[in-house]
Design a protein around this nucleic acid. Structure first.
Length: 349
DNA sequence: AAAGTTCTCAACCGCCCGCGG
DNA sequence: TCCGCGGGCGGTTGAGAACTT
């Protein structure tokens, strides 16, 4: 007599999520909000365990998640926090609001543990010994954003828009445009789409009834901006939807941003943003914090950028005030004040 | 080019905790 | 106080990608 399973395993689907399932889940959450996971499979018709739904949302579909390489700054934070807190990944993740506990845990197990082990085995490597590809410069904006971060309940509350911005903290990164990474835009797309009109409920029903038709309806853009622009074989042209991953693509994000290149940046998977937003009836999805990823990556309007920047600075000031009332871990503060924020990983490992 | 090995990470499993009745 | 349920968390697994031989 063991513990009963969390859900009836008969008829429960396992394995990777498909785009159809994601859209159904996201559209449901857009309508009802996250929570009450038990009812999600029932109400959506998804053949998934409630936990699986929660996990999928928390780790991949939730807005504001940043994917891809960890910066040296993030690595440093993880190392320090792990030393302080142990394997409390959720707690550590609360200091890295753009990262999920699962991501951090994986990164620790696959990269950092190895690095630390190597470090212990060779106690005095020169700072220059770290592979250059793993040492990434952390600019001041990255520093600033961390310096004002206080722990957040990443798994239970929507993220503040400000923390969801940008990839500007790295100069170069390797982006895997996997299906999972592209799902960020599904929620974004759906958010705007559902805002644009009042028919959310009926759309959900349609999605559940016929995911393919549902996707086709979403594909309201022209051929150049089809759902394939979500990346990686996410197409609606035929009946075949696939989660096949494309090869990794090197992306210079600075260049990408400067030139409005839409090819493979996981933060910029929609083709013509303005056109698409116009067609979808997007408002500023992120309110006053301007976390419009496509805009932030692709915006040629200096005035708007400055405006967004000043709002961000205001927000940071506000957070600093909050921070004074609720200070973060002192050692981290010290680490940052003393320049740890700009420390390269080579000085840690 | 093929086979074997290693690496990565999405997803699952099961335990724990908090809450409400 | 007890019990059941839902949700959260950390450990682990396994499929597929990447790399090596």
């Amino acid at each position: 007599m063991g513990r009963p399973p969390c859900c009836d395993k008969v008829g429960i689907k396992k394995g990777p999520w498909t785009p159809e399932e994601d859209i159904i889940l996201v559209s449901y959450i857009q309508e009802h909000g996250p929570g009450n996971w038990r009812s999600v499979p029932t109400n959506t018709g998804l053949l998934r365990c409630s936990k699986s739904c929660r996990l999928r949302w928390t780790n991949y579909l939730r807005p504001g998640i940043r994917r891809g390489n960890f910066t040296s700054h993030e690595e440093g934070m993880i190392v320090h926090l792990q030393a302080l807190l142990g394997n409390k990944w959720a707690a550590i993740a609360s200091y890295l609001p753009q990262r999920t506990d699962n991501d951090i845990k994986n990164y620790w197990n696959t990269h950092l543990k190895k690095k630390l082990k190597n470090k212990l085995q060779s106690p005095s490597p020169s700072p220059s010994s770290a592979p250059s590809s793993e040492v990434q410069h952390v600019d001041s904006s990255s520093f600033m954003s961390f310096n004002t971060i206080t722990p957040t309940a990443t798994t239970t509350a929507p993220l503040p828009s400000a923390v969801a911005t940008s990839s500007s903290s790295t100069t170069t990164t390797t982006t895997t445009t996997s299906y999972a990474s592209s799902t960020e835009n599904i929620s974004r797309l759906l958010e705007g789409w559902m805002k644009a009109s009042n028919g959310g409920g009926s759309r959900l029903a349609a999605a559940v009834e016929s995911p393919h038709n549902y996707l086709s309806k979403l594909n309201i853009n022209n051929n150049n901006n089809s759902m394939a622009d979500f990346g990686n074989g996410f197409t609606t042209g035929g009946d075949v939807l696939t989660t096949a991953k494309p090869p990794k693509v090197e992306v210079d994000q600075q260049q990408d941003s400067d030139h409005g290149d839409h090819d493979h940046d996981d933060m910029d998977l929609i083709g013509n943003d303005e056109e698409l937003e116009s067609m979808l009836g997007f408002e500023d999805l992120n309110g006053d914090q301007s976390n419009h990823i496509s805009s932030s990556n692709n915006n040629d309007d200096d005035g708007e950028m400055k405006d967004k920047y000043s709002r961000k600075v205001d927000h940071e000031k506000m957070k600093q005030q909050q921070q004074q009332a609720n200070p973060p871990l002192s050692f981290l503060e010290k680490w940052l004040v003393e320049g740890g924020g700009d420390m390269e990983m080579s000085s840690i490992f």
